[in-house]
Design a protein around this nucleic acid. Sequence first.
DNA 1: CTGTATCCTCGAGGATACTG
DNA 2: CAGTATCCTCGAGGATACAG
Lengths: 119, 119
Amino acid sequence: MKKEFNNRCEVVLNLLSGKWKAHILYFLTKGPARTSELKRLVTGISQKMLTEQLKELERDGLVARKVFNQIPPKVEYSLTEHGSSLTKVLGEIVEWTENYVEQRHPDGEVVFHDNDDGL
Amino acid sequence: MKKEFNNRCEVVLNLLSGKWKAHILYFLTKGPARTSELKRLVTGISQKMLTEQLKELERDGLVARKVFNQIPPKVEYSLTEHGSSLTKVLGEIVEWTENYVEQRHPDGEVVFHDNDDGL
DNA sequence: CTGTATCCTCGAGGATACTG
DNA sequence: CAGTATCCTCGAGGATACAG
């Protein structure tokens, strides 16, 4: 299946296209997490969306899925090499954002739900 | 109006959220362009979408709009300081993409419609 | 606990016609 | 040439129930 893009930047926009992917990746930069943890951390996400987006991230090689054969089931997700190199690059974006927000939206018109300078 | 984000990276994803914005910005990195030029360059975009996305890019301070009072009308769009600093940062993303595609999709499974290493 | 299967809503984006 | 106004489609994403 051939995929076509207008420019190289769109590839990444595509990888992060889902409504929740950036958010999921953000938590995974802090370390591996199992499904239930992510469901709790990513506030507001539904079961369906979580599974779907994780599947896509895995397919795209950004996230690794490890299944522990036990009862009750346990599945752990973590960043792959590709995943962590991408999030590292996204750090630049974060820096740019700091500046942008400071200049265009001083005085708290823009709010971040993490206080960690994350992703 | 207060805007809320889960992490800083999402701000940029939001700025580029429209289906065509990255593509439009890409052409503007090559220099200012008037409406009709963009309509021709951004293949497949409709009149409506072009105006809409440009309006949003302008509102977000990434693109400047200059009107020439003449008949027939002439409007020219260009990158602002914010706009060109962002596209500069996106260059990092482009580099990452080169690598990613090379490793995960060797042999032309992924195609770019510009041959210019753009955006 | 993790994941699948359905059904439904809603808005981004396309097509087309029209104004100045 | 540049932009607005309508109408319509379609799929991403939400809610819920169920399975292993």
